[in-house]
Design a protein around this nucleic acid. Structure first.
Lengths: 201, 201, 201, 201
DNA sequence: TATGAATGAGACTTCATTCAT
DNA sequence: CATGAATGAAGTCTCATTCAT
């Protein structure tokens, strides 16, 4: 009895509304009213499903992190080599294919700025960076091992590629003309290769 | 006759106030009152010297860009080789030395997010990215030439290093534990070397 | 389901608040806080029902114009002669009867001044003047026709009476002692008669 | 010794500045800074010569009243008949000749609105209305006497013409297309004639 | 006289959040 | 669940006035 709860769907609609508004106007420009409008809801409803505006943001951060991860997994094949997996990881993050989501990238940049002074956001943002770092470290370690080299530098290499990915988001969003033709993926792949095969200096 | 103008100093104090507050609380959290407090001024005075809050921000963006450039120039020597200059450029941007300014880095991140939806900020942010790109391209071209290699890829390599620098700002600010010991500079140097000496694939 | 809307009533209360304050202190003196106080509302509510202070003013201008029109219609009888209707029109505008509203007259004067530099107000003020002009022109044309005279000058006569009405508002509000005993209506009626029966010079 | 005071000229410049700004933006839009700018002065100087913004306004009101009076006197000839003088008075107020000053008319309208709630302004505005009324009464009395009629109604007729003049200011400023071709002067002249020669009803 | 900095009150407006229906 | 009114704090900005130089 009673109608079935539609809360989870409503919550998703609200997060989607925040994504839409925030990617256009930033977090400060995303008023509850604007979020509701973008979601096709009445503004009074937002606080019924979310206790606060910050809670919507943290929910969205989880969506964004999950989205990147899903994009990576969708591109993986079971029989990929270590090197292939590494390249796939890079592509999943910076390639401008049909599944690229400019809104998500813009929102992610906003999140990275909010993370600086909102502890709840920072926690999730850092967790996402850590997860990315771990995966990259794993991939680099595999690739190094395959080359018969020490995996000692895997973490360092992961940090470099992770930083390049994060930075590519900014440059691609604000100054796409500075991104080499054919997307940034190719350059980042080369960078990873250079790191893998360079001297241990 | 008349009172001597102190506007330039006051404007500098106000920008410094914005830097202080913004690096702690973001642009949205930097109210005029807070900026004035940080600058030791009464809030009414802020709008006497700056027409709007946005004007303070754009002024600060120019400061930040100029600061990075100055840091680089201060580290250059006249007799640096191409490779040395490239490494110096990287160090100037990501090394955590005594002249590093965490506040500036945090503020820069905030700026990069504001640039997404504030045209005036975007213009300056993009100009800074372009300037960085040009300098890196020049440095890579020199270094490649010295190796007797084509400079065709100089722009691409510049984009990769520029992205890595920008991304390092984020990781260093939000998740410093993911930055390899001894700063990110070493890793980025290695990345640049790898790019310089890698195959042209 | 949901709460019934009371926006129309609230908006009317707010316009009434503006009328009350503006007639005492002018438009500049009518702060949102003062309007809210006069309307018995909390000031935050004003901008929930009206997007801006200017929007309240334009709403009020429409009220005032409609009020004058209603006053005229209420005094009309179906079997009035042309001359009677003309006199009724004048009375409705300048007679000081029990339905006269000093506040409305004072507010109207304020509106006429604001119209000089606020396009939205000007549009409505001019529309009201045009409507008054048209009605007077019609009435004069009828009265002239009845006298077997040309209606060529009807518009000109309308302009004169319309101006006299507008001017009477000012004199009655600022210097009522200059208004002849028994109200200005008698004098304006005589003026209309003189214009109707004068030579065509 | 000491330089000769230029206060009176400065005060005139400031009043002229207020006239310029007020006719464009109203009294509320006439900030001290804007007045100074229009007058070619620095804003700090304004309060040296005028104790308050209101004092500038009252000074300007006197200018405006004096200007209208001067315009009338300049058009009078010593040997004018009573009727001619009356027509000259009307022309001096509403004719659109080369000496007409649209700015002054717009400023006068603003003054008439401010008079409603600023006692100092009201005093001067009412005084100007009274002076106009007295002059018109005198002129009507003369003209009536010449016709061998009672001067009993002179004040009433003065009130009607005075109102028509004031109202013409508004219509000419806000809706000039409602003013009959060839200026309002002709119509007001006819109105005066009609009042002079009409029945005493 | 003249300049321009400084002050502080107050303006309009936005908005997250609460709550009655 | 849903709606929309209501609240109050806070934000940016304007400005008349005062004052040091």
């Amino acid at each position: 009895m009673g109608r079935p709860s539609n809360t989870e769907q409503r919550r998703a609609e609200i997060r989607e509304g925040l994504l839409a508004v925030m990617s256009e106007r930033g977090y400060g420009g995303a008023s509850i009213a604007a979020i509701a409008r973008a979601a096709g809801l009445r503004s009074g409803l937002v606080h019924y499903h979310y206790e606060s505006k910050l809670a919507i943001l943290t929910g969205l951060v989880e969506d964004l992190a999950a989205g990147l991860d899903a994009r990576y997994r969708a591109r993986c094949s079971a029989d990929d080599s270590s090197d292939e997996r590494l390249m796939t990881f890079i592509d999943a993050h910076v390639a401008t294919g049909p599944d690229a989501d400019q809104r998500a990238v813009r929102a992610w940049i906003t999140v990275s700025a909010e993370a600086l002074h909102q502890p709840e956001v920072r926690t999730l943002y850092v967790a996402a960076l850590e997860q990315r770092h771990e995966e990259l470290k794993r991939l680099f370690a595999s690739a190094l091992k395959q080359r018969g080299r020490s995996t000692r530098k895997a973490s360092e290499l992961a940090a470099a590629v992770s930083a390049a990915i994060e930075g590519t988001f900014h440059i691609a969003s604000a100054a796409p003309h500075l991104i080499p033709k054919g997307s940034a993926a190719r350059t980042l792949r080369r960078m990873a290769s250079g790191l893998l095969d360079g001297t241990d200096a």
